[in-house]
Design a protein around this nucleic acid. Structure first.
Length: 349
DNA sequence: TCAGATT
């Protein structure tokens, strides 16, 4: 693989926000049985505002996608923060795991792994654990539970400020029967060395909460609706930074030149990419700064090598501006990148 | 003291 990046916004520390310790364990490459699909991936910890189209754009940068689905709440339509990507070629699925697992997008670190075959037996296998000793580590938590089955994820919630364990956590097993056995074996039991017993029970179901939140919104404040798509779009657009009268759409039609503004977001020009640069490097560089809707490496038609530049589209002006300020002059391998809002200049280089 | 992994 190519150059690894280690920079990004300084705000981003842990894998999924400051309040949790999380693993991205259960290495997917080694976990599949011979029966499992080698093309279908599950993608977890997606940013809340990421759309299915953006998911497809991100994973489509690796190879041809057979299908792609962002899972949403049935009632609210809100993203549940995970989705599925099914590639045509198993090699591309493997490549996606190798290149995109652990990619930072906004405040999240996405997890990419093979999807298990869907079945009833793997549902409702998630446990909520409380009363844990504050000193217990995630590894110790897993050790305690692993005797009951294969752990898919584990987590200990921590205080946002101090980073100290809150004594509660989650264990997701591969199968529900394993979770049931763990409750039987560990609920009301004292872990080794602990003075108090722990509580182990099934965790709340995820989609219930968002549905409830929506319903209470509807019933409690009927006059305070969420802003509709138009209002949201108007908020995203920041014309007064350049022109006091510009309005999204109108400016484009009127031919007023706003640097970088491409109608659907802010287009950023990235110059001095290496010939072997690919889309994933652009996702890696810009993803941590905010909502990226698209990336594109410009390649020579015949050689398929990068012509030295590419483009990145970001939804929000402020995030784009910070990304540009941070990445302009960034050293990628032996090259120093030039990063700016796209202009209408013709770039010949 | 419940984050967000099975379409």
């Amino acid at each position: 693989m190519e150059t690894q990046l280690s920079n990004g916004p300084t705000c981003n520390n842990t894998s999924n926000g400051p309040s949790t310790i999380s693993n991205n364990c259960s290495s997917p490459v080694e976990s599949g049985s011979i029966e499992d699909s080698k093309t279908n991936l599950i993608v977890n910890y997606l940013p809340q505002n990421m759309t299915q189209e953006e998911l497809k754009s991100l994973f489509g940068s690796i190879g041809e996608i057979e299908s792609c689905k962002l899972v949403r709440d049935k009632i609210t339509g809100q993203s549940l923060g995970y989705g599925f990507v099914n590639y045509v070629d198993p090699k591309d699925a493997e490549k996606a795991i190798n290149t995109l697992n652990g990619l930072r997008l906004q405040t999240k670190t996405i997890k990419v792994s093979y999807a298990r075959p869907s079945s009833a037996s793997i549902r409702d296998a998630n446990l909520y654990v409380s009363g844990l000793p504050k000193t217990m580590t995630q590894k110790e938590l897993e050790q305690l539970f692993s005797q009951y089955g294969r752990i898919i994820t584990s987590r200990i919630l921590v205080d946002q400020v101090t980073g100290v364990s809150r004594g509660v956590g989650f264990i997701r097993f591969d199968r529900r029967v394993e979770a049931e056995e763990a409750i039987k074996g560990l609920n009301c039991q004292k872990p080794p060395g602990a003075t108090e017993p722990i509580t182990v029970k099934f965790a709340n179901n995820p989609s219930q909460k968002t549905s409830q939140a929506l319903l209470s919104q509807l019933y409690q404040s009927p006059n305070r609706r969420y802003p509709g798509p138009l209002a949201q779009q108007a908020q995203r657009f920041r014309p007064n930074r350049f022109s006091p009268m510009a309005i999204d759409g109108v400016t484009s039609l009127a031919g007023i030149n706003i640097p970088g503004h491409a109608g659907t977001g802010w287009c950023i020009f990235v110059y001095n990419l290496a010939p072997d640069a690919d889309e994933s490097i652009l996702w890696q560089m810009f993803g941590p700064f905010g909502a990226v809707t698209n990336v594109k490496v410009i390649r020579d038609f015949n050689t398929n090598k990068c012509k030295g530049f590419g483009f990145v589209t970001m939804t929000n002006y402020d995030e784009a501006a910070v990304a540009i300020a941070s990445l302009n002059g960034y050293r990628l391998g032996d090259r120093v990148l030039q990063v700016s809002f796209k202009t209408n200049k013709t770039h010949k280089a």
